[in-house]
Amino acid sequence: MSDNPIRILIAKPGLDGHDRGAKIIARALRDAGLEVIYTGLRQSPMMIVEAAMQEDVQVIGVSILSGAHQVLVPRIINLLHEKGLGHVPLLVGGIIPENEVDELFQMGVTGVFGPGTSTSDVVALVQDVIT
């Protein structure tokens, strides 16, 4: 079982137009041996959850730089539960003010990565979440 690569969805919800961060994370995860499904920009929570379902991924990572995480994240989590995917860990990266991190954890997010996080920390957490 452990021979099979981990499948992860990396998605950009909402309207922000910068995906350099998401691409760097995708690349780091690929180099760590993961299969990364990248959705591209401007995905709605519904599109992300639908993609996660079809791709049967083990983890979802979303990158949000727009400040809309308090709106987007609960929507994604609700939809995941609706689709029976409540068990799939959701990681959030991007510009998240420190005093809002706890709130995200309370919503059910498994990991939050702010600016300056090293890619090896992201990879380590993803692998940790799976095993």
Binding site: P5, I37, Y38, T39, G40, M47, E55
Partner: peptide, 26 residues
């Protein structure tokens, strides 16, 4: 080298997402 992959075909298939008549798998 790493056996990993970036599967990016969905980026170009935006118009097909959310349609119950289509199922996409990378």
């Amino acid at each position: 080298f790493s056996k990993g992959a970036i599967l990016g075909d969905r980026i170009r298939m935006k118009d097909l997402l959310g349609d119950e008549g289509i199922f996409i798998r990378s």
